[in-house]
Design a binder for these strands. Structure first.
Lengths: 327, 327
DNA sequence: CTCTTTATGCTCATCATGAGCATAAAGAGG
DNA sequence: CCTCTTTATGCTCATGATGAGCATAAAGAG
């Protein structure tokens, strides 16, 4: 019996109607014996060591088989191999190492086969969406609980460290919000027992920090929310220096459509005119002369992505505010 | 018999005397039967699925056991799982998935046990070191061979594509040099049969593009040079937005020492006064008032890294030229 | 014809960056 | 002690990028 198996996890993302959507599947929860229903999970498939020449071919193969989606842009994210990833594993089953991938697909490919469905990424991370201002869940639930968690720490040094960490990652004590720290935020919530995954991983080792109904964000199976956090953080970072947004857009688009997709992923609103300027003299796009059937005002020009930008600019991206290293 | 095994590869880096050094081991080459001596390889160790709770603990364990080094900063790089990674594998042995890590250590830890030794990273990638100007190997060997490779392509479309790619990654046709594209450059050389690893992977499938003696850079075992390229590219990128250099420096250092380490990794020279300015008002360091025993001129102040920068700046790094997204 | 809505053009202050001049503070050699 | 060399450090200036907002254009709705 093999002691180790390789699994391939996919975070498949699209943006529709200004909502970043993630492909999820339902699977039986760990407490099925207690009758505790199903959980959301990321689609998952095995590597066929004999026939899949590369890991990402293996991924594409089973995604095609399971959902009918033919993946385009695919990027390896991270390999998760903690022994306690899946508590169920400890009992003699092989240890599963999960190689996680991020895939970007266009709206058109939304229709999927099987039991898969698209869910709003911000259902899982409500604190990450600042487009309508500071999310209220931060001040209502997260900040106070983190404060209690910090206060309940015996050592003064550890207390200070925890407070600083909370301030930094959640932008609390006047610190700036950094959109890319999605994973750090999730991990902090995990440690502070603000997500059910935390006490599921180590049953009996702690108490939920809040009543279940007020916990922030929808949980996922095993460590899948951690994988999703890794994906969102990585995608937000990549937006800035690689033209990945275009993987999510139709072949032609207006600048506002482009902006909305960027905003949906970055979780912030951007200044419209400056965004235009950045994109236009960044040489990333090219006007087609054609116009979009009016969306309520003056018709907008349709643009296409210039595939040859890469030649001119070393690191083309769509530019987000706050990239400066020195303020 | 297990079909799959997990290996952990480590790129352990230090900077000494302005040279970025990588810990390597010697291991018997694939052609040992032909008497073709040993190869350089990255240190490698197995994961113990029973006892290593996490992958990076496994890594730390065997690095400690094999070399005596206690790793500090460790970061997962990438998971390499191509079936043909190691040609020797195809014959019935299990497929090895390699999870590669980057570790940074200080000069002091240079002394290592066992058969490990430190080698200049630029021996493997001579085209990556631009500190003394454009490396001559580019114009002497790489550019002409790539030109031949391009010219020998039947389809005009493919020809154009190859030329563009060569221009972009090697900064040839007036394109800018992007220090981070280390992996893309190595992969291009691989495809163009400019590295011995290429025809070793697919024996008989092609001819060396150049006589062995003039091939650029020192080869490594299996796909280890690819892993090293991944590491160098990632490190160069990370320098810009995370204070990782300080992992490589002694607790106190002068600004010039800091600059030299950054330059060694980035492979470019920086403007001294501007570098100072960037570092100083970046708030990354703090003067100690003490001074360095003169190194030939006016004594330089000793600085320490301010661990609490993270609090103030979302993405502190040491700043390299050419980060602008729009020129 | 007017109002509303979105698109697009343009200006301006501020800040970051690249380049280089100038001065300071040490040791070496006379 | 004086001068030269070397590295450290301070400062200026032109240029370009960014953040903010005003103004005009072009469509549909009423």
């Amino acid at each position: 019996m093999p002691k180790i198996a390789i699994g391939l996890n996919a975070v498949i993302a699209a943006v529709t109607d200004e909502v970043p959507r993630i492909l999820t599947v339902r699977r039986p929860g760990p407490d099925t014996s207690h009758g505790a229903g199903a959980e959301d999970a990321l689609p998952f498939g095995p590597l066929d060591p004999e026939n899949d020449r590369t890991l990402d071919r293996g991924l594409r193969r089973w995604v095609r088989e399971q959902t009918g989606i033919e993946l385009g842009y695919v990027e390896q994210l991270y390999t998760f191999g903690d022994r306690d990833r899946d508590p169920a594993e400890s009992r003699g089953r092989p240890r599963i190492i999960a190689v996680a991938y991020l895939a970007l697909v266009r709206e058109r490919e939304r229709e999927v086969a099987g039991q898969a469905r698209w869910l709003d990424a911000y259902e899982f991370f409500p604190w990450e969406d600042w487009r309508a201002g500071r999310p209220e869940v931060i001040d209502r639930a997260i900040a106070p609980t983190l404060a209690r968690w910090t206060a309940g720490t015996p050592s003064a040094l550890a207390r200070r460290e925890r407070r600083e960490r909370a301030d930094i990652v959640f932008g609390l004590g006047g610190a700036a919000w950094d959109g890319e720290r999605v994973l750090e935020r999730y991990e902090l919530l995990f440690e502070a027992a603000l997500v059910p995954e935390a006490w599921r991983a180590a049953p009996g080792s702690g108490t939920p920090a809040l009543p279940a109904a007020t916990l922030p964000g929808r949980p996922m199976a095993v460590d899948h929310r951690r994988i999703l956090a890794t994906a969102l953080g990585r995608l937000r970072g990549k937006l800035k220096y690689r033209p990945v947004v275009f993987e999510l857009l139709p072949p032609t688009f207006t600048l506002l459509q482009l902006q909305r997709v960027v905003e949906a992923l970055a979780g912030v609103r951007l200044h419209k005119q400056n965004f235009r300027r950045l994109i236009e003299n960044g040489g990333l796009v090219e006007g087609t002369g054609r116009h979009h059937p009016a969306t309520g005002g003056r018709p907008a020009e349709l643009f296409v992505f210039r595939r040859d930008v890469l030649r001119e600019r070393p690191a083309p991206g769509v530019g987000l505010p706050g990239i400066r290293r020195v303020s």
